[in-house]
Computed example of a mutant assay.
Amino acid sequence: WRSCGPFRITESAGVFLMEIAGRYRDRKVGILTGGLSAEREISRRSAAAVYGALERRGYEVELVEGDRSVAAGLSSSGVEVVFNALHGRYGEDGCVQGLLEVLRIPYTGSGVQASSLAMDKWLTKKVIESAGIPTPAADLLAAHDRPDRSYPMVLKPRSEGSSNGVGIAHGPEELPAVLAGARAFPGDVLAEDFIAGREVTVAVLEGKPLAAMEVIALGDEFHSWEVKYTAGREEFILPAPLGERYEEAMAVAAATHEAVQASVYSRVDLRIDEAGNPFVLECNTLPGLHELGWFPRMAAFAGIEFDDLIEGLLDRADLGVVETVREEGK
């Protein structure tokens, strides 16, 4: 967990006010873009949106490639604070966060521990289960394991985002192809119970749930990569029509954010079963900030305009690891 200064958001009549101090307005801002994951294309879209917002606010900004030369790029560019717009492996899993801690460059988003935990869907599931938060039952499959769960089941890579490798097997005849799709990415695979119902996502900012939004995939049964990143392939209902269970979904998302020790902001994705019960699928510690991103849409609904959101997130950039020295004789 990282404490990011004396900032806060307040709520009045359902509208959230995000305090903005311009903490880094006189510093050069580096925006990490691209990266080394299968989500590099989406990262570039988020980075472009962030760049535009900060440029409109008068910041000196530079895009920095999040590839294997990122340390050299950060040093040569002279950036003094980083807005992390990377997604997926290396950028969202604690790797870049650890590098920035060593370089002593403040950065946006969660720290090393929360980033690493939340990117690992299996460990996230274990942590939130231990906190009493409902999540679909699942098994972890190593390289040659076969799933032993009832159909339909969801198969997904352990540590990927943006629905990469995710599929639903409705019966044994579909299992080989769906399992092969999940195994196309490195690491273990989760075989998870499919929760029939609706998909809802919740934006959480500084521990406060801003809004719950139902997301409906058009032309597919779930939010595949193609659905998420193609304009017109999704329908959004804000606020999610959950009736008296709305606040429960918001509370479950906030509890998940806290359980994984996320810092500043996250997006928690849920399935709502036919009885209205919420089940947590995952916690995204660097949700998309691009033109189709779900988090900015919910923030706007809660009264936080995009440029305010981006500057406010930059205000909260910080470091989380403190160097220690052992004094002799103690």
Rank of each mutant, 00 (worst) to 15 (best):
M153Q: 10
L99F: 04
A142I: 06
W122A: 12
V50W: 01
T108K: 09
A85R: 00
L140C: 08
S150M: 07
I42D: 01
A47H: 01
S75K: 14
V50I: 15
K126E: 15
G109L: 05
G78E: 04
W122V: 05
S69W: 14
D67V: 05
I105W: 08
S116A: 15
P147Q: 12
E160W: 09
E129Q: 10
N164A: 13
K125L: 13
S116N: 12
A72R: 14
D139F: 06
S37Q: 12
L140E: 08
V154H: 04
G165R: 01
V166Y: 12
L36H: 10
Y59T: 00
E62F: 00
H144C: 09
A38C: 10
V79R: 06
A53E: 08
R68T: 14
P136Q: 10
R44E: 07
D145P: 13
R57F: 01
E60D: 14
I42V: 15
V96I: 15
P157I: 08
R56Y: 03
N84L: 05
I105V: 15
S163G: 09
L63C: 02
G111N: 10
T124P: 05
E60T: 11
R104N: 13
S46E: 06
A47Y: 00
E65N: 13
Y151T: 05
G73M: 03
A48C: 04
L36C: 14
E92M: 06
A85M: 01
S110V: 06
